[in-house]
Structures are given as C-alpha cells and as structure tokens.
C-alpha cells in the first residue's frame, strides 16, 4: 500500500472513514514509520487545537438572550403570503425574457422587401422560367449565370443565339470582361431573355 495522503490521514484521525478503510490505514501505519511520524504530528496539532477551542468555548458563554425570546410573543412573525410570488417570480421572469428576446429577433431580423415591378427581370425560356429581381448586386451574378447557361445548355444556346453556337463560342472566348458586359447589355436590349 502506498503512503497515506494527508487529507486521508486527518480523516483517519477524525474517524471519518469507513470501518474497512480505517482498518486498512491502521494496518499500513503498523508497517510504515514515515506515516506514523506524520500521524503523530497531526495528532499533536489536533490536540493543541482542541485544547484551545475547549478553553475558548468555556470563556465565551452565550450572552444573555432571555430578552429576545420574550420579544417573540409580542411581535407576530411575518405571515408568508408572499409564498406564491416568491415561487413564481423566477419562472415568470424567464418566460417574459424569452418572449421579449424572440419578439426582438422577429422585428430586427432582415426580411425580404417586395421589389417594385419595374425591377423584375423575367427569364422565360422553353427550359425554364424564373423571375429575378435586378438589384445592382444581383446583376453581376445574373450575368455569370446567364453565360453559364449559354455554355451548358446547347438547345438553349441555339434558341438564344439563332443556332450559330460555334461561332458565338469563339467570339465569347476572345472577349474580355468589358466586352462581355457590353454583349450582355446588347442581348438584353434586343430582348433576348
């Protein structure tokens, strides 16, 4: 068995452990001089402390208090009619807090604002129909999407670009960013949607 730690040693001295543990430690103490020395030290400290406390308690008797118990009859104790309030305050406050928080989240969260009619842009093809709002931020994404559409969907490109896909592909590849944008604008102007 390993040496006993100090907290256990104090528990042993205060008789705080189970009987099995007390016996185990007692057995260890018979073998281990190191622990015996510690035990003797602690015993001495506890003895001195106990002596001091016994004396301290003896010289500090309870101060006179008969007048307190006499007062008891005169003043009635507080009635506990606040019992329900005390017990319901916390849950009620919690509910109000949760409601308030959820209302705030509802009111302060960003929501989609209806877009004016003139800003709608309608993609209306054989393949699919979609209504997109043309905000400034969205426009760029739309162009990219539209070009991808042209590249990816041959049927669509034929429809849009009057069947001459190969030619337009070459042209599109040679164009730089600005020219591309110009082309797209032209396409919009011509009603290619």
């Amino acid at each position: 068995m390993k040496c006993i730690n100090k907290i256990k040693l104090l528990d042993y001295l205060n008789n705080e452990l189970s009987e099995r543990k007390q016996n185990q430690i007692a057995a260890h103490l018979l073998e281990c001089e190191h622990c015996r020395k510690h035990l003797a030290e602690w015993k001495k400290v506890l003895n001195i402390t106990q002596q001091f406390i016994d004396q301290d308690i003896k010289i500090h008797p309870a101060p006179p208090h008969a007048h307190i118990t006499q007062q008891f009859g005169k003043v009635p104790p507080k009635s506990d009619n606040l019992f329900w309030i005390r017990y319901w305050t916390k849950p009620a406050l919690a509910t109000v807090a949760v409601l308030f928080a959820s209302l705030m989240i509802f009111f302060l969260s960003p929501r989609s604002v209806p877009i004016p009619q003139e800003n709608y842009y309608v993609i209306d093809n054989v393949a699919y129909t979609e209504t997109i709002s043309l905000s400034d931020v969205y426009l760029n994404d739309l162009e990219i999407m539209y070009l991808q559409e042209i590249y990816e969907n041959e049927e669509l490109t034929d429809d849009i670009l009057y069947g001459d896909w190969l030619y337009y592909e070459e042209v599109l590849n040679d164009l730089n960013q600005e020219e591309l944008e110009e082309l797209i604008n032209k396409m919009y102007d011509n009603g290619i949607t």
Partner: peptide
C-alpha cells in the same frame, strides 16, 4: 439573526 429566524419562521 435569531430575530430574523423568528420573523421568518413561517417561510
């Protein structure tokens, strides 16, 4: 402390 104990004995 003991006055408090008495006053609040109902709680």
């Amino acid at each position: 402390i003991f006055l408090k104990v008495y006053e609040n004995i109902n709680s």
